[in-house]
Simulated scan of single mutants.
Amino acid sequence: MRKSSLAAAVGIVTVGAVLVAGAPAAASPSKMQAAIDTLVRDGGVVGAQVKLTANGREQNLRAGVAKIDGDRPVPESGNFRIGSVTKQFTATVLLQLAGEGKIALDEPVKTYLPGLLPKEDKITSRMILQHTAGIPNYTNMIETGGEGYLENQKRRFTDQEIVDIALAKPLDFEPGTKFSYSNTGYVVAGMLIKAVTGNTWQSEVTKRIAKPLGLRDTSAPQYSTGIPGPNAHGYVKTKDGFADVTRLSPSIAGAGGAMISSTADLTTYMSALLGGRLLKPAQFAEMKKTITVSPEYGLGLRVLPTTCGKTIIGHTGGIPGWLTASFTTPDGKVKLAASVNEKEETDIELFHKMVDVAFCG
């Protein structure tokens, strides 16, 4: 849900709407470890944990510590807040519902949520998922980072409250004409899931994805402030030092960023998504499809280049205290799941370099 993103730091590569990837490759353990060590040393983070999978071989690497004033290492496969990687799970559920004929991606949102949005006869579920609806981003209107965030750390937001905050402003543009990343849109996506199923997005993600895949470390909390299981601590920088934000109300992120997971579970999710266990071929094709006004983003799926000419797909995620990356080559042969626990906002260039090294060696 962070205002800045990995995609903003690099160019985006697509060839039409087709994802292109080079031959599988991955970093050696020593190169990957060096990139992680550099990020921890120079990137504003306390610690980092990484799972890199290449051609069936898994590497679990880490650096740094779990707490600023401690000496306990970051858990090798600990749990962490995944921020906007949550959007992949939310989009997967909506695409499952589309495959079941329970929602139509190009039907106006007013069919399911009448009266919620302006220009409700023009905004579709597809636009919501692809960030082309023009819905203002509420994280530009309230403090979601730095010392100012501490006022909202334990605040219990409702989805309607978040949407109301965003819609105090008019739409950013005519629906469907531009791309603008909107965390608000994914809060609306969570509301769409409830409108169609009668259940919260949290319960549908759990029922449809976490339980069938055996994702024991993955949860979608609404107000619970803790992180289950072993975990590192996240911080934000203040004028007096650093404030621990490990315990926070995830309701500020909702269906766009509230989930908790682990590197092992994110790797399993990526494998299942590419392996056809979560979406029918037609719906997975929709997820990967980019359009002229949104060349870098499908439906809950980012498309990013690497320095060695490969394309990787997945998502980044930022929430106070944590930054996450979950990416794979389109053929699924190389996968990266990574989390850093922060003491201040991570140096995004170093974070991207770590991701790039994973796929380019």
Rank of each mutant, 00 (worst) to 15 (best):
L52N: 07
P136G: 07
K310A: 10
G234E: 08
A282C: 13
K67A: 15
R2L: 10
I135R: 01
A272L: 08
G22Q: 13
E76A: 10
H131S: 02
G198F: 12
I348Y: 15
P305F: 07
K119Y: 01
Q283K: 10
E344G: 04
G44N: 14
I348G: 15
I260F: 14
T184C: 04
S5V: 00
G257W: 09
L299Y: 11
T53R: 10
G115S: 06
P108R: 12
H131E: 05
L278Y: 09
T290A: 15
Q59W: 05
L192K: 01
R72A: 14
I123L: 04
V163P: 02
P228I: 00
G318C: 05
R302P: 00
N60H: 11
S249T: 04
T225R: 15
I123R: 06
R155E: 05
N199H: 15
A91E: 05
E342G: 10
N60D: 00
G11A: 10
D159C: 00
D71A: 05
K87S: 02
Q202F: 11
V236E: 00
I319K: 14
V74N: 02
T238S: 11
T132C: 10
D69V: 06
T246H: 12
N183Q: 07
K194P: 00
L97Q: 01
T14W: 08
K353V: 00
N341V: 04
A272I: 10
L95R: 09
G314N: 08
A26W: 06
M287Q: 09
Q88K: 07
D331C: 13
I319R: 14
F89T: 03
F179V: 01
F80R: 01
G276C: 07
V205F: 11
I319V: 12
N183M: 06
A7S: 08
A54F: 12
K31Y: 03
Y186V: 04
V245N: 08
E147A: 15
A168T: 09
P170F: 08
T200D: 01
T86E: 14
N79K: 14
A91P: 03
V85W: 11
G176E: 07
E296C: 07
M141F: 09
G318W: 11
L97R: 02
V357L: 02
S180T: 03
L323V: 00
T184L: 06
K289L: 05
M127F: 07
D159L: 02
I227P: 15
V93K: 05
L97D: 05
V303W: 10
P221E: 03
I123S: 02
K335Y: 02
S251H: 09
G176R: 04
I227Q: 14
